[in-house]
Computed example of a mutant assay.
Amino acid sequence: MADTPTPLWRRLWPVYVILLGLGVALSQGWHEYLTVESLSANAVTLDAMVREHFLVVFASYIVIYAAATTFMVPGSALTIGGGFLFGLALGTPATVIGATLGASILFFASKTSIGAVLRDIAGPFIEKMRAGFAENPVSYMFALRLIPLFPFAAVNIAPGLLGAKYRDYLLTTFFGIIPGTLAYTWIGAAVKGTLLQGGTPDIGSLAANFVPAFIALGAVSLLPVAYKKLFPKKVPA
Rank of each mutant, 00 (worst) to 15 (best):
A122I: 00
D202W: 11
T181R: 12
Y61S: 04
R119K: 03
A59W: 07
L206S: 04
T70K: 03
V155R: 01
N136D: 15
P212S: 13
R119H: 00
T35F: 09
S76E: 12
A158M: 02
A67S: 13
T181H: 15
R145M: 06
V17D: 04
A219K: 05
M1S: 12
G123Y: 02
L149F: 11
G193S: 07
V50R: 13
A103Q: 01
R167Y: 14
V73S: 03
I187W: 08
L106N: 01
L39V: 09
K233D: 15
F174A: 10
S60E: 09
T112R: 00
A66V: 04
K111L: 14
G29I: 09
L217A: 11
N42P: 04
E32D: 13
P7H: 04
V63D: 12
S205L: 08
A25M: 09
N42T: 07
R145Y: 07
P212Y: 14
R167Q: 14
L8M: 10
F58K: 05
D120P: 00
L217K: 04
K165F: 10
L195K: 02
D47T: 12
L223C: 08
P148C: 06
V211R: 13
K229L: 14
A143L: 06
V57M: 15
N209K: 08
A134W: 12
G176N: 05
N209S: 12
G75M: 04
H31M: 07
I203M: 10
K128F: 01
G176P: 02
G204C: 08
L22H: 10
L146V: 07
F152C: 02
S113I: 00
N209D: 10
R130N: 05
Y184L: 15
L146A: 04
G102M: 04
F107V: 00
G180H: 06
Y169A: 02
L26D: 11
V56A: 12
I80G: 03
L34M: 13
I18A: 08
R51G: 15
I177G: 03
Y169R: 02
K229C: 10
Y140L: 05
T181Q: 15
G82Y: 06
K229W: 11
A116G: 12
Y166E: 06
A134M: 12
K234Y: 10
L34W: 14
P148F: 07
F174Q: 04
A183S: 10
P224G: 06
V73L: 13
P5G: 09
I178H: 11
V50D: 15
L106K: 00
A190T: 03
A116M: 07
N136P: 06
A158W: 00
W186G: 15
S221L: 13
P151G: 03
L149G: 05
S110I: 01
F142N: 05
F86K: 03
F54Y: 15
G29Q: 11
I62A: 06
A213P: 01
N42E: 09
D3G: 13
D168C: 13
P212Q: 14
Y184G: 08
V57W: 14
F107I: 02
S139C: 08
R167V: 14
W13Y: 13
S104N: 07
L90E: 14
K234Q: 13
L12I: 00
A89L: 15
A66S: 12
F58S: 06
G132R: 01
G198E: 07
F152N: 01
A94P: 00
A207F: 11
A67E: 08
V138Q: 10
S76H: 06
T194D: 09
T4A: 09
A68P: 01
D120Q: 07
L85W: 09
I215H: 10
